[in-house]
Design a protein around this nucleic acid. Structure first.
Length: 300
DNA sequence: ACCCAGGCGGGCG
DNA sequence: CGCCCGCATGGG
């Protein structure tokens, strides 16, 4: 990984190996970055709820090396954020070697080489994955965008462009139920307002210990509307717990087909299997299987 | 028309 | 506990 900061243009440029923008974003995993993601131009505009990070990312891929350019006044802070959020320190060769246990994973790795997990703001991740329940990716993206457009605050970037920040839990608290429903949230509206209140007044997501997976997950499940699957998504994609193994309908079907002889299997047994089989990088195995399942289904 | 989507809480046995 | 149901909404 190489980096350079140009202080006249406030632009940081990082070269990264084993990074695929396309697969990372098409895998429908970094939901919080979707509000202004341009697939054709390979750009992201994003501003965090905390207001600490605004980024315009322009990413070019060339083989297995990507060049990421982002803008911000503080080069070191920007570098630190990008490093965290795009998991730039992950040694993909080591991770691949660790999870590459069979032909299923092997194929997925070769198809989507460079696909990364990302780490996003815990509150934003919570909101996105509450919306995700009993929903589909296309609609989730639309609803998230509606919410960012409606409840975020306008923020002017160093290049003069304006981005809406992701709304804070406090901003979402102001929303009426009817308003949220109008943005497409449907029956999830009550979970959204309740989670916003709870995360503003009762549970500080930024103070939860990120490393104790079991404890983190049980704390997250105290939020109304957050069950086991959504808690696993937040643990993995909001706090970076790579051992989490979110098991949605796609993963459940895939796991039953590939590892349980096509038999209907309890969530508990799937989790135990994933833990034994893939260990500390189970989250990555999950993401490759998930994307592969969805992509091959779409082609059929 | 019918089925499905990155599930969850509640109710019942 | 495990199982089953309803739930908004839009696309295939």
């Amino acid at each position: 990984m190489e980096k350079g900061f140009d202080s006249s243009s406030n632009c940081i440029t990082i070269k990264i190996k084993d990074f695929s923008m396309l697969h990372t974003f098409e895998s429908a995993q970094p939901l919080t970055f979707y509000a202004d993601y341009n697939k054709d131009k390979n750009t992201i505009k994003y501003a965090s709820a905390s207001g600490k990070l605004a980024m315009l990312v322009d990413l070019k891929e060339d083989g297995n090396t990507a060049t990421m350019s982002a803008y911000g006044s503080d080069g070191e802070a920007l570098y630190s954020e990008l490093k965290t959020r795009f998991r730039l320190k992950d040694n993909m060769q080591k991770i691949y070697k660790s999870i590459d246990k069979d032909e299923n994973i092997s194929k997925a790795i070769s198809r989507y080489r460079g696909m990364r997990l990302t780490i996003n703001d815990p509150w934003e991740t919570t909101l996105c994955f509450i919306i995700s329940q009993f929903n589909n990716v296309k609609r989730i993206r639309l609803i998230v965008k509606n919410i960012v457009d409606r409840f975020g605050s306008a923020l002017e970037c160093s290049d003069g462009s304006v981005i809406n920040t992701f709304p804070t839990s406090r901003q979402i608290m102001q929303a009426t139920d009817a308003e949220l429903r109008r943005l497409g949230t449907g029956f999830r509206s009550k979970y959204i307002t309740s989670a916003a209140e709870f995360c503003t007044n009762n549970m500080d997501l930024y103070k939860l210990s990120p490393n104790n997976y079991e404890k983190l997950k049980s704390r997250l499940m105290e939020i109304d509307g957050v069950g086991e699957k959504v808690a696993d998504c937040i643990a993995l994609m909001g706090y970076g717990n790579l051992n989490a193994f979110p098991t949605d309908v796609w993963i459940k079907r895939t796991m039953e087909k590939l590892y349980f002889d096509g038999k209907k299997t309890r969530l508990f047994d799937i989790h135990e299997f994933a833990k034994d089989y893939w260990g500390k990088y189970a989250g990555y195995a999950q993401q490759y299987l998930f994307h592969d399942a969805r992509t091959s289904k779409a082609k059929r």
